[in-house]
Structures are given as structure tokens and as C-alpha cells.
Nucleic acid binder design. Structure first.
Lengths: 359, 359
DNA sequence: CGTGAAAATGGTTACGTAACCATTTTTTAT
DNA sequence: ATAAAAAATGGTTACGTAACCATTTTCACG
């Protein structure tokens, strides 16, 4: 039987265990809980991690203490002793590219659902030593990244670190684990489609060929021209940074061409959508005045106001989702098989492309 | 003078310091570096943290050892002893709302530039005990969040935790620190504008009024009707979940109305853009057949193909950016002033609204 | 009821770092 | 040259947890 006095004493006791700290209350440790419950710290740990190995009454005592003291275990301390952080680093491309919006969503949600925290980093270029510094210091359990060049020197460091990692979208020349789409075929399908519509003044707008996606898509673009017996004119090939500003420069350059393009093959939907904006703002009609095709099949491209013709993965898969699933597998089962997934692609015919009017 | 034999010995020595671990190499500690360099662990720590207090030769010796052993300090261990993690938790709304794309970008980039890691969480509803569990266990230095209800019970726990936190976009009824737009005025401006265009069959589409943004915007909507002497008909008010599926349900319900709306006031641009998609896909023309206005002034709404009329912050500020700046201030200077920022708004007249044709 | 096995609990240690205090070395001022 | 001060370095500890081994308690069985 518990008297009011007992209760009061117990309450006072709980108060005493609350050390005031700089920020506010708390910083109650499992030691405090142990003392309060009259057991050893080891037992407190067991209550939380292997409750089966603790007798009913003990369990209740400890849980009561945890409640009374408002104890929250410290994941950092646990990481230190267990040598794992339950954290995955994500190095994504910028979100102004809708492709990364979708992959980031999938990656973060899937990881969180599976008990992993995600440290996010957005990188525009590949000059991100600071980012890797932070990632390596944090001893993350895995790394999922897109931002890498075909011959990126960081790759060696990644391998040497021993941390499981996988790339999505892009890959490195020596990549063991990656999830990509069939970039070459994507480029081919898009270009072949434009050619089949009768276009020949086609501009290619893409990023640097040191990046696997751009390289593959450009190669496919070339193959389509070859197959159709059309020559690629170098002045219509624009390799540019994918920022809005640089794309606007590119737009202006295309406007200066002697023979203006009747179609644009953008290496990504993000580029396509941005170019659409420039053209429409300049008074052009899409597709009547200019056809535009992208690659990636991003969600926003399916909006009725945009209706972007594009090439994308045949299935409804999401490269980020696939990659994070594999990465977490790799983290769990210590054996590391090669994950090399190249998803098949197909054309999504929509409303930004039209047969060339012969004038 | 160093002979080849010396070099070889040194190399062998370095090798010996590399303990093979489960995953791969490494797990070199500052102790290993100390032994290798012939100094104390304390000195190694000093070389990294207060190099001024170390003599030149010692510094060089230690740096050489760090290099030779490929030593990377363990941020977790540092966190444990320093009682800070240099980590901020972000609880954002889902990225299919473009508003959160922009805020997330700003928050992650600014935090990373200032030496903080960001743990991202996307939440659709407010039922996220697991998320908070993880956040509290990780002893983050600060929390920046949008997902909160006006009377959210989690608020009390946040306060009690003693962790600095700030909300952006939304706020709690008792919030000490928040960054929002003038939601009431935004709702007012949008509704008043539609009314000024001659619309009266206006549908409101928004989320639950337990959320400050929706509540404020709806209140403003009501005020505009009152000011214009127009009655709000309850059957034209749709309070719904903002998922694509639920919005489609709403669209179907609007189609069933006896008197179909001539204009839609969406509580957010995300809703507006989604409704646009449904209407155009169903064969309507925007704005000729139906006017649509949003709130937030998201980037994609400015695209030439969408051109969404909307209400947004007058300045080019970004609520997420403002909030993360303030939060990091709060973390650095231990005093915690009240950050209560309500940004002024204005109308952005674009192409999804038109004067009502009197039939 | 006694004995051995199993279950429950406790004590000690390590994880890797920075804080703290102690000691040694160097510099400065006389 | 010497004392005092300053600089440089080292030893020990704590941070909070789980692993590991030791001890005690409980239980089953003959």
C-alpha cells in the first residue's frame, strides 16, 4: 500500500535525478535509471534491448523508472559501442531537377521506414570534398549517391573507405554497384523519334560527357542519327551546365543559329522543361513552332499543362527506390554482391512533339 | 637522412596499425596516431582542434602519422564528450508539394554550409511518434519543422526536450519561434481578387483547419466575402487531405455541384496545380472555363506553361531559409529570444484567372 | 530435499574523443 | 645566471551505452 507520503518522496526522488543542463532539462542516463530503479545499468540496457531476459517485476520497475525520469537512450553512445550509426548519407543532385525530388522522397522514406536516418547533401558540381569529409567523420553505415563522374577520383576513396555504397542514375566507370536506366537506348529512342517525325535541324542540349547519363544519352543520340543516315552538326550540340542561367545562355545561342532548330533533344526532362519555358516566354508555341523531347519521365512532365514527350523507365520503378533497397540489403547482409541494374526504357509520346511541317 | 630500409620499416609500421575490420580497413583511432607519432593522444587531439598550442615539429609529426594511417576522427565519439551533435532534424512536408522542395533545398544547403548535418524526415500526416523518437534519441542540436497542428500535443514534448526548435510555414498556437507568411491576408487577397473579377461561384479547396496555414487562409477567404457582401456557401468549401487521390475526389464532387464553380481558390499552389491538371485533363480550359488561384508562389507556378496566379511573400525570401538561419543563431547563442516572423504578402497576377464572362 | 542446469542479474570494460589537471620544457625578465 | 612565467605536452577521466564475463537466484528433476 502506497501512502501519499510515499508518493511525495518518490516524486522528490525523481526531481533529484533531473540535472539541470545548459539547454534545459534532461540528460538522464541509463545509470540514473538504474539507480532509481535499484538495479544495475546492465539490467536497464537489457530491459530495452533484450526484455525477454528480464523478469516481469524487474522489467516493470525499470520501465517505471524510465517513465519517471523521462529517460531517452543516447543513440550516439550506442553507435560508439556498436560501431554502427544506423545512418545513411545521401548525395543527391539539386531538387530543382524534379528527377531528384522523386528519388529523394523514395530514398528518405524507405530508409526511415527501415530504421535508418538519412543525412542529405545536395551537390551541384562534383567538387565536394567537404561533404565527403563530413560523411567519413560520421561513420555512416552506407552511402547512396548520384553525383559522380565517370572517372571521378573520389571513387577510389569511397572504395577504400570500406563503407557500402551504391550509385543511382549516374555511375562511375569502375562502379560495382549501381542502378541506372539504359541511357544509350533512351538517347537513341528520343532522337530516333524526332527523326521519324521529319526533324533534322535537331539541337542536343545536355551536360558534360564526363557524366555517365549524358555520355550514354548522347551516344544513343549519335546512333540514331547514324541509323537514319543523318549527319550530326556540331554547332547544334550544346554541352552545358544544367543551371537555369547556363541553359538560358544556351537558348540564346540557339536563337542565333543560322538555321534555327525545329526540335530539341534535351538530355533530361529538367532541361526540357526549362527550355520549354524559355521558348514559350519568347513567344514560340510548343510543339507547333518547336518540338521538345526529354528523358527521365518525371512526374511534373505528365501535368496536363506541360505534357512533355519523353523517354523513361518502362516499369513504374524509381531508380532511387531501387538503389536504397539494395543498399540496405548490402548493409544488413555483410556479403557484398554486385548490384548492376540497368532498367529498360520506352518512349512516352505526349504533346510537346509534332511532325515537322515542311515549309 | 632516411635510408630505403627506414622507409620500408616505416611502411610496415603503418601497415601494422591498420586493423582489418568486418567491413574493410580502418577504424584507426587517435590513440593509434599518437603511438605512431610518438606523442600522447591528447596532443593528437590538440593538433586537430587547437593547432596553435602545438609546436611546429610536433604538429608535422602528428600530421604525417594522420596521413600515413589515413586517420579520420570519429564525429560520434566527439559528440559524446562534447554533448552536441552538429545535427539538425528537419521535419518537412512531402516534396510533391513544390513549396517544400524549395524550403528543403534552402534548409539543407544553408545548414551544410554552416557545418551542420541535416536529418530529413518527410511527414504526410502528423502521426509521427516514431520520427520524434528517433530525433530525441539522436540528441540533435536543433529541430526545424513544418508539420505541426495548431494544438498539436507533440508541442509540449518539444518544449520539454529543451532542444531549440523553430517552425516554418505552419505554427503551433503557443509557438515561441516561427516563420510564416501572413496567411490571413494571403487568403483575403486571393479571394478578394477572384471576387473583383466578378466570380461568385467560388470553390475553396484547402486542408484541415487544425493547421495554421489553412486556418489563416480560410479566415482571410471569409473576410473577403464579408467585405464584398457575398455569402459563403458551405457546399463550395472543401476541406480535404492534400493527396492527389483526395484532391481527385474533391474534383469529382465539384463536378457534381448543381452550380459548377467559375473559380477555385486553392489554399496552396500545390493544390491549385493539381486541380489545374484535373480540369484540363477533363477538357476544361484554364482560365476561360475556370479560374484558379493558389497561395505560396512556388517556382514551378511561374513556368510559362502553368503561369499560376497566386499570392506569395512580397520579398524574394524563402520561409525555410529564414527559419534555418534563425535556428542556427539560436543554437549558437544560448539565449533564446522569440523569433516570430510573419512575412507580408502580395498578389502575383498571372494567367490562370480571368474576368467572369456573364452568360 | 539436494543437485545441477538454466535463468536472472551484476560488475567491469571498451568504444574514441575532448576536458581537465599535472608535469615538463621553453621563454622572458631581472 | 636564475627565478618566474608561459608554452608545450602528458596522464587520467568522463561521456552513455552494450559486450562480456562473473555471480547469484530460480527452477527442474531425481
Amino acid at each position: 500500500m502506497q501512502t501519499p507520503a510515499d508518493e511525495a518522496r518518490q516524486l522528490a526522488s525523481a526531481q533529484n535525478f533531473r540535472h539541470m543542463k545548459a539547454g534545459g532539462f534532461d540528460m538522464v542516463s541509463s545509470k540514473d535509471v538504474a539507480k532509481y530503479a535499484g538495479v544495475s545499468q546492465t539490467t536497464v540496457s537489457r530491459v530495452l534491448n533484450t526484455p525477454d531476459r528480464v523478469k516481469g517485476p524487474t522489467y516493470k520497475k525499470v520501465m517505471a523508472a524510465i517513465d519517471a525520469l523521462n529517460y531517452i537512450p543516447d543513440a550516439n553512445a550506442r553507435s560508439l559501442v556498436q560501431q554502427k550509426t544506423d545512418t545513411i548519407a545521401l548525395i543527391s543532385g539539386p531538387l530543382y531537377n524534379p528527377f531528384f525530388v522523386e528519388t529523394t522522397t523514395s530514398i528518405v522514406n524507405y530508409a526511415n521506414e527501415n530504421g535508418f536516418k538519412i543525412n542529405v547533401h545536395f551537390s551541384k558540381n562534383e567538387n565536394i570534398t567537404d561533404t565527403y569529409h563530413s560523411i567519413f567523420e560520421n561513420k555512416v553505415d552506407g552511402i547512396i549517391l548520384s553525383s559522380i563522374l565517370l572517372d571521378d577520383p573520389i571513387f577510389e576513396k569511397l572504395e577504400k573507405s570500406g563503407i557500402p555504397f551504391i550509385t543511382y542514375n549516374r555511375k562511375h566507370a569502375s562502379n560495382k554497384n549501381f542502378v541506372e536506366m539504359d541511357n544509350e537506348q533512351a538517347g537513341f529512342l528520343a532522337a530516333d523519334y524526332l527523326l521519324s517525325l521529319g526533324h533534322d535541324a535537331i539541337c542536343w542540349v545536355g551536360g558534360p560527357l564526363e557524366i555517365s547519363t549524358f555520355k550514354g544519352r548522347y551516344d544513343g543520340f549519335l546512333r540514331a542519327f547514324q541509323k537514319n543516315g543523318v549527319a550530326v552538326e556540331q554547332e547544334r550540340v550544346f554541352l552545358t551546365d544544367t543551371s537555369k542561367e547556363q541553359l538560358h545562355e544556351t537558348f540564346l545561342k540557339m536563337e542565333m543559329l543560322e538555321e534555327k532548330p525545329t526540335a530539341i533533344h534535351a538530355a533530361t526532362d529538367a532541361i526540357a522543361i526549362q527550355m520549354m519555358d524559355f521558348y514559350i516566354s519568347a513567344g514560340y508555341r510548343v510543339p507547333e513552332d518547336i518540338s521538345i523531347i526529354g528523358i527521365d519521365n518525371v512526374e511534373i512532365g505528365q501535368h496536363a499543362s506541360i505534357n512533355l514527350t519523353t523517354v523513361g523507365i518502362s516499369s513504374t520503378a524509381n531508380l532511387g527506390q531501387l538503389a536504397i533497397e539494395k543498399l540496405i540489403d548490402m548493409i544488413h547482409q555483410k556479403n557484398k554482391p554486385c548490384i548492376q541494374i540497368t532498367k529498360a526504357v520506352r518512349l512516352f509520346e505526349r504533346k510537346t512533339t509534332i511532325e515537322r511541317r515542311r515549309v
